[in-house]
Design a binder for these strands. Structure first.
Length: 278
DNA sequence: CATCGGACCTGTTAGC
DNA sequence: TGCTAACAGGTCCGAT
């Protein structure tokens, strides 16, 4: 489900409620997520106070305070996978099916519930001063200064893979998933099938601008709700109204007189207009 | 190295 | 109506 805008929307929705809250207890109803929940997480989390929430790529970084005698605090890392979501519930509200993990919070008294039908998401524990291995190999943030045309151009030389796969590779740039890759390539006028190594520096410049613009606008709209994505407060994101090509096979292209097509690239549905994407 | 396919899961929908 | 197959917002890992 969630790409960068949905994760960022989740972060922004949670932060005002969770900053300063204390985790009284962790209740695990299903430990078998993408990876089994680590024992050190279960032992280390209860009693900690949440200091801040950051985001790196599609990972939420829930920063915790230091225990007595420690110099820095550990970080609880959550990835939402394809179908994960976090929601703040009144503790009296019954748990739903697929609410796999809950945190009992104090100040305010709330239950933070992790819901994930497909269980492709994961929870990790990062001790103070360490970088979790999953975060070590990530490319730059798309909204940060290190994501630029020169980087895309340099990394792509000699690469024969389709540019859409190159763009979705988290070593190239993080946070761009299937929806926003399609939208950014449409906005930049680039055919998703084109070999990454056969795109000019100037066109990568247009792609960088398109990625930034699309992700930024999606964050402003609270992300994209296609089926079931909801923000932590339970409201949908509104970016679905702005989608130009994603999930619009057979519909007219918003820019030319062509028709949006659906193909498969890297086993993922890919939407584009052959009329104006070259 | 780069590239590809399979794997991990459940729920919803389209098609017969 | 009921069964089956395809498909869904991610990404790691092993084989080539």
């Amino acid at each position: 489900m969630p790409e960068l805008p949905e994760v960022e929307t989740t972060r922004r929705g949670l932060l005002p409620h969770l900053r300063g809250a204390r985790v009284l207890a962790l209740r695990v109803h299903q430990a078998r997520l993408r990876w089994p929940l680590a024992a050190e997480l279960c032992e280390g989390l209860p009693g900690r106070r949440i200091v801040d929430i950051q985001r790196r790529a599609k990972y939420l970084l829930i920063e915790l305070d230091a225990a007595a005698g420690e110099t820095g605090g550990p970080t609880l890392i959550v990835h939402l996978g394809m179908s994960g979501s976090l929601r703040l519930d009144d503790p009296a509200t019954p748990r739903r099916r697929h609410d796999h993990v809950e945190l009992d919070l104090q100040g305010p008294s709330l239950s933070l519930r992790y819901h994930d039908p497909r269980r492709f998401g994961s929870w990790h524990w990062q001790p103070a001063g360490q970088t979790h291995p999953l975060l070590a190999q990530l490319g730059p943030e798309p909204l940060g200064p290190d994501f630029d045309a020169e980087r895309l151009w340099r990394l792509s030389r000699g690469r024969r893979a389709a540019v859409k796969l190159f763009l979705m590779d988290q070593a190239t740039v993080v946070g761009v998933g299937n929806i926003y890759a399609a939208e950014a390539l449409f906005q930049a006028g680039i055919d998703p099938r084109r070999g990454a190594g056969r795109i000019s520096l100037a066109r990568y410049g247009r792609l960088v601008e398109a990625v930034r613009e699309v992700l930024g606008r999606a964050i402003e709209q609270g992300g994209t709700t296609l089926r079931d994505y909801l923000r932590p407060e339970g409201t949908p994101g509104y970016f679905a109204q702005s989608l130009a090509v994603y999930d619009k096979a057979g519909q007219p292209c918003p820019r030319c007189d062509g028709t949006v097509k659906r193909i498969v690239l890297g086993q993922r549905a890919t939407f584009f207009c052959a009329g104006c994407q070259r």
